[in-house]
């Protein structure tokens, strides 16, 4: 899907939102749901940032770190990929207090989802680094760059381009899994919807709006990632003929 199609879809989903909002039966739910959506967006953005940081650190530590770091990275990746995000959130929220650690619900949401998606992201980072041709490492060694200099200056800039599409998927996964934070008392979009549904029973209206809102957010993510990919690819292979 190109940038243009994505832009059109983003606009369409906003128009759909406006149309829905223009019916009286829907209008009353919009302010409350928008509040919930804002919470969802905040968790998503902060969670994604944390996920990227964790993924880069864990991915590189697993590949090039000294053995204790490598071991730590492997543990992190396997634990967070091998257990469900819901259990991880419950752990942070309900279990840690038993050990005297009390975290704000929002902090738990961001840390839990960020660490969870970061574990998948670490494999994305690793795969993209490994996909850079070996000759790039060899040229770097021949020019006497250290391994870290080669990684930073030569390998990562090239790996970045290959990482962007899978990261787009992971960000959308993170957005979708924010719905489970309603189980640790956060008033996100899904939570607000359920709450309104219980008091008003207007299921069709409420969940139609919720659907459109989630779609709009994920389309914005897709669009941003497309733009990023286009810029990065242009920077990497300016004027490449083939």
């Amino acid at each position: 899907m190109g940038v243009r199609q994505t832009t059109i879809l983003v606009i369409l989903s906003f128009v759909a939102g406006l149309v829905v909002a223009s019916f009286a039966g829907f209008r009353e739910f919009i302010p409350g749901l928008l509040e919930g959506a804002w919470v969802t967006v905040r968790i998503t953005v902060q969670g994604c940032l944390l996920a990227v940081v964790m993924a880069v650190i864990a991915g590189i530590a697993k590949m090039y770190g000294p053995w204790p770091l490598r071991w730590l990275a492997v543990c992190y990746i396997e634990v967070f990929r091998g257990t469900s995000a819901l259990v991880q959130l419950f752990w942070l929220f309900f279990v840690l207090p038993h050990f005297g650690v009390f975290l704000e619900p929002m902090t738990v949401a961001v840390v839990g989802l960020g660490l969870n998606v970061g574990a998948y992201g670490a494999e994305v980072v690793r795969g993209a680094i490994q996909a850079v041709p070996r000759g790039q490492w060899e040229a770097s060694t021949a020019l006497n760059l250290t391994r870290m200099q080669a990684l930073r200056r030569i390998i990562l800039p090239q790996a970045l381009v290959a990482m962007i599409p899978p990261w787009g998927n992971l960000f959308i996964e993170l957005l979708k899994s924010t719905a489970i934070v309603s189980l640790i008392t956060i008033g996100d979009l899904a939570f607000r919807a359920q709450q309104m549904n219980q008091t008003t029973l207007k299921t069709v209206q409420i969940f139609s709006i919720v659907l459109v809102m989630y779609l709009a957010i994920s389309m914005v993510i897709t669009l941003l990632m497309r733009l990023l990919e286009r810029r990065a690819a242009a920077g990497l292979s300016r004027g490449r003929v083939s």
Binding site: G135, A139, A142, I154, L236
Partner: peptide
Amino acid sequence: MVFQHFNLFPH
């Protein structure tokens, strides 16, 4: 060293 396949930095 100069390599058979150049190995220039494409970026």
